[in-house]
């Protein structure tokens, strides 16, 4: 069923299980494409859990935007099965982002210093890599992001 995410005073519902199921079917294929194994984009120090509640919504909104703008878009694959699964994930992320945008519109998704700082850290890890390599690595780390969301 649906999972309710409590992000400070922003509360949304999302189909995390459907996303997990979809990602689990392509995880090995995607992670196998990631040749840079000595670094990570989504690190524990910048996780949602380690962020104070009032900043969690903003951090997640920025991370989702990163995935929508620069991960799903730059991930290329000739494999139609993987293409369908990444499309499914991208469209599900779009649904979550719409819900977060509602929170933003209702002033329940403020961006404090902590969210801004942590997102810039994530972005700097991301931008250490080429766009293509960053997209592959970030997509391979989707289970980390889903786990962060699971624990909200």
């Amino acid at each position: 069923g649906l999972k309710t995410l409590h992000l400070g005073s922003c509360v949304i519902t999302t189909n995390l299980q459907e996303m997990r199921n979809g990602f689990s079917e392509i995880r090995d294929s995607v992670q196998a494409k990631d040749e840079i194994i000595d670094t990570r984009i989504l690190r524990k120090t910048e996780s949602l859990q380690d962020t104070k509640p009032t900043d969690q919504c903003c951090l997640l909104r920025h991370v989702l935007r990163l995935y929508l703008d620069r991960v799903f878009k730059n991930f290329k694959t000739p494999d139609h099965r993987i293409l369908r699964k990444t499309s499914s994930l991208a469209n599900s992320f779009l649904t979550v982002k719409k819900e977060l945008r509602l929170c933003h519109a209702h002033m329940t998704c403020p961006c404090g210093e902590e969210a801004t700082e942590k997102y810039s850290q994530i972005l700097s890890h991301f931008e250490e890599l080429t766009p293509q390599a960053a997209a592959v690595k970030a997509l391979g780390e989707l289970d980390i992001l889903l786990q962060w969301m699971e624990e909200m």
């Binding site: 799903f72 878009k73 293409l83 369908r84 499309s87 469209n91 779009l94």
Partner: peptide, 16 residues
């Protein structure tokens, strides 16, 4: 087919 994501972010992409 293309979902809303494809039509918004990569409108040239259609998926078999």
């Amino acid at each position: 087919y293309q979902g809303e994501y494809e039509s918004l972010y990569m409108s040239h992409i259609w998926i078999p």
